[in-house]
Design a protein around this nucleic acid. Structure first.
Length: 294
DNA sequence: ATGGTTGCGTAGCAA
């Protein structure tokens, strides 16, 4: 694949499309910041260090009116929020023009949780439809006498939400434009995406029904960008604040950028910004990023 | 097995 950092082949071994003008790549990232108020130092510091062009944020835990919009606008970012008081909330920060911004995941008008935002990123050599998502956690899960998860409550909401996401992902695939689905999926796709997979066996993040819903996205043609770059184990994007998970290396990979075939053809590189978890007053997640020719 | 921590908002839930 891209191990050398020099090979330019896509998922099917095809040569990739030409680079954007001047050889520049567009860096898109996803970052669950776990509260914008708590990250007013760490987030700008990471933006300055990592220099992404567009960032999908999750868990801003803020209504739109309380988001520190001007702080980021003064730093040169276009700010689009879809917030909610205390919980959830997603946003997009962009140095490139964003157009056709929409808020909320279609399919259930009664759903008041702020977990989905879309925009078209206007690049020099083309546009990308970017979806920023915060997929429901789904815990706690109840189990019946046969040991099967009870599909109701929070876990039912997670699976229903994933069915709605699949419907929207299907619509976007039909456009045949580059699409990036970036966010906190609250899904550990495979055993090698956890340091202690056995500890997650009955958790909503790793149950077979959760993984099957994630695989459906792959089977319809969305590629896990990080896995195109790095197939091996030991790469995580979340370490719990509790029980010294970070110090013990007890992480999981749950933040993902899924690429439509047209977006996968533009992929140059992908990675996890592990260092962000070790700084001063960090989020419990760390950013995941891709470089696209776009 | 249990408890361990952080954020929001100022109690107790969510993760």
């Amino acid at each position: 694949m891209f191990r050398s950092g020099l090979a330019r082949t896509g998922p099917n071994g095809d040569r990739l499309a030409p680079l954007a003008r001047g050889g520049a790549a567009v860096k898109l990232a996803t970052f669950n910041i776990n509260g914008i108020k708590a990250r007013l130092e760490a987030l700008p510091a990471w933006l300055d260090r990592a220099r992404p062009d567009v960032v999908a944020l999750q868990e801003i835990k803020s209504p739109d009116a309380a988001f520190p919009r001007t702080l980021f606008e003064d730093l040169g970012w276009q700010v689009e929020t879809h917030g909610q008081k205390s919980f959830n909330g997603v946003a997009l920060l962009s140095r490139m023009p964003l157009e056709d911004v929409t808020r909320g995941l279609p399919g259930d008008d009664s759903d008041e949780q702020a977990r989905w935002i879309e925009a078209t990123v206007i690049g020099e050599a083309g546009a990308v439809r970017l979806c920023g998502l915060y997929l429901p956690n789904g815990n706690p899960v109840g189990f019946d006498d046969a040991g099967q998860p009870e599909i109701g409550g929070k876990y039912g909401y997670k699976l229903d939400w994933m069915a709605r996401m699949r419907a929207r992902a299907t619509e976007l695939l039909a456009t045949e434009e580059p699409v990036v689905l970036a966010g906190d999926y609250n899904i550990i796709p495979q055993a090698e995406d956890a340091a202690r997979p056995e500890a997650w066996a009955k958790d909503a993040l790793a149950l077979p029904e959760s993984r099957a819903a994630f695989r459906r996205l792959e089977h319809m043609g969305y590629y896990d960008a990080f896995r195109l770059r790095e197939p091996g184990p030991g790469h995580y994007s979340f370490w719990d604040y509790q029980a010294g998970a970070w110090e013990r290396g007890n992480g999981i990979r749950i933040d993902h950028l899924m690429l439509s075939p047209q977006a996968a053809d533009l992929l140059r590189d992908a990675g996890i910004d592990r260092d962000a978890r070790g700084g001063e007053k960090p989020s419990d997640h760390t950013p995941v990023w891709i470089d696209l020719a776009a």
